[in-house]
């Protein structure tokens, strides 16, 4: 009995790989989108997701202030003569644990995309960029979507699912 249960568990583990989940947090720290990709993944209840989003938002804000290095304040002049402001501190970008890896992408407007993958997933940056592209296309160009509100767009769901399935099957 023991070995059977263990074996089944291992099968489930090996089926779920690649990109596991996506969470989108708005600039006020509210959860606006969460989705898991694949069967048999652990699910949090809605309240926990909301708490998670708020907590992560706070932790991210703290990590932007943690850098022990002094920030270069002087505006640098680029080759074409346009002064450029130094990038703001990025804060938390990657969080790794034994079982999963969390990649965070903070857009210029403060929307955060959290992508949960397994430890071996390569090119998470590319996937993140594509997810951001899909968001820009199918969410912000949708006249029925209000900014900072929960994302309920069928086309976004559809395109996201097919893209993630494509990546996960390619491995």
């Amino acid at each position: 009995m023991w070995s059977v249960a263990g074996g089944r568990e291992r099968v489930a583990m090996s089926e779920n790989r690649g990109i596991l989940a996506l969470i989108v947090i708005n600039k006020a720290g509210g959860l606006i989108y969460n989705r898991t990709f694949g069967d048999g993944l652990n699910q949090l209840n809605t309240n926990d997701y909301l708490v998670l989003a708020g907590t992560f938002h706070g932790v991210h804000a703290i990590t932007t202030r943690l850098s022990p290095l002094k920030q270069q304040q002087a505006a640098s002049i680029t080759a074409d003569g346009i002064p450029s402001r130094p990038d703001p501190p990025s804060g938390l970008e990657v969080l790794e644990s034994e079982n999963f890896r969390l990649q965070c992408f903070n857009t210029l407007t403060g929307t955060k995309f959290l992508l949960f993958t397994d430890n071996l997933q390569a090119n998470v940056d590319v996937a993140m960029r594509k997810v951001y592209d899909l968001y820009a296309d199918y969410v912000t160009k949708n006249p029925f979507y209000q900014l900072e509100m929960p994302i309920r767009c069928d086309t976004f769901d559809r395109k996201l699912n097919s893209y993630i399935r494509e990546i996960n099957n390619a491995r």
Binding site: K141, N142, P143, F144, Y145, R152, D154, T155
Partner: peptide
Amino acid sequence: RYISVPRDMSQLNC
């Protein structure tokens, strides 16, 4: 192309 009509307005086609 980029429009998803919410369920409560499903009769609408832009």
